[in-house]
């Protein structure tokens, strides 16, 4: 009995109470998995004393969380959904934060010849034509939504044995693609930080259709009076500040830049960081 009590004391004693000044941000797995937050947020907390709690889920679920008022801000990457969210009045003050791009990855052998294609749409056509295995997130995430839009642009409604919807995150999709030699679409950040590539390679990138912008939205306090709008706005102001934008631009994995800050100039073509992201393979 005394041993058990001692154990409990040890376990509980080592924990201090969490700080009172915190905000919750609903965000995407891609930003989380890349390690950006681990790198960025401690700096924000150190300067402002505000703790940031990131709940990283698919964009669809992140929107839902914010819509229910379970987060104070939203940092996602699917513009049409974000606009709808703003239009419905759930969010206010959207700002561009950064972008990177989507890429098509697949087995090194590249049976569908995706790497020879001119653009992403052609790449998908080739995959469908060869009925090569393709892993789709199938989870209403930003990446999945973008993938669906691209199939639509290609005029293909993908189905058949070769098209596998797994209903899981980016990492799970990459793990699966790597183990069954399939193609998939990933955001560049997750891809670069992914550690189980196996024979997978980046086959196609640099198409404007693959532009992947991230924006921050504050949850509307008129819908949810309990949200910490002031703290959330402090964060929003900070992340688009020159200081934070520089930090984002300096974040690299294996000497590759993962995100291009674009709070000042929201177009990819504006050339905020044209050289640092290798846009063409």
């Amino acid at each position: 009995m005394r041993l058990v009590l001692a154990l409990i004391l040890v376990v509980y004693g080592t924990f201090s109470n969490a700080s009172e000044r915190f905000i919750t941000i609903a965000s995407t797995t891609s930003t989380q998995n890349s390690g950006l937050y681990d790198y960025l947020l401690p700096i924000f907390t150190a300067t402002t004393g505000i703790e940031v709690r990131v709940v990283a889920v698919g964009t669809g679920q992140a929107l839902k969380i914010a819509q229910n008022g379970d987060a104070d801000a939203l940092l996602v990457h699917h513009r049409p959904s974000e606009d709808a969210f703003l239009a419905m009045g759930y969010g206010i003050e959207r700002r561009d934060v950064m972008y990177n791009d989507f890429i098509i990855v697949g087995p090194k052998a590249d049976p569908a010849g995706v790497s020879n294609q001119e653009n992403a749409i052609n790449g998908l056509e080739a995959i469908a034509q060869h009925a090569s295995l393709f892993i789709s997130r199938g989870d209403e995430s930003g990446t999945h939504k973008r993938e669906s839009e691209m199939w639509a642009l290609a005029g293909i409604s993908p189905n058949g044995d070769w098209y596998r919807e797994i209903g899981a995150g980016m990492g799970a999709a990459l793990n699966m693609a790597s183990s069954v030699d399939a193609y998939t679409i990933s955001d560049r950040g997750t891809w670069l930080s992914f550690n189980n590539k196996g024979t997978l390679e980046m086959l196609l990138a640099g198409d404007a259709a693959l532009f992947n912008p991230y924006g921050i939205i504050l949850v509307n306090p008129q819908k949810h009076p309990h949200v910490k709008i002031d703290l959330a706005r402090t964060f929003s102001d900070w992340i688009v500040s020159d200081e934070a934008q520089k930090i984002i631009g300096a974040f690299t994995i294996q000497n590759m830049q993962l995100f291009c800050p674009n709070a000042k100039s929201p177009k990819a073509s504006d050339g905020v960081c044209p050289t640092s992201v290798p846009m063409q393979k």
Binding site: Q32, D38, R53, V54, G169, G171, A172, K197
Partner: peptide, 19 residues
């Protein structure tokens, strides 16, 4: 949430998803 609600199993899930 890192440093707040991240436990062993969710860390394992996360690290798996990162490959």
């Amino acid at each position: 949430i890192a440093g707040f609600t991240r436990v062993m199993t969710t860390t394992i899930a996360l690290e798996t998803s990162k490959g």
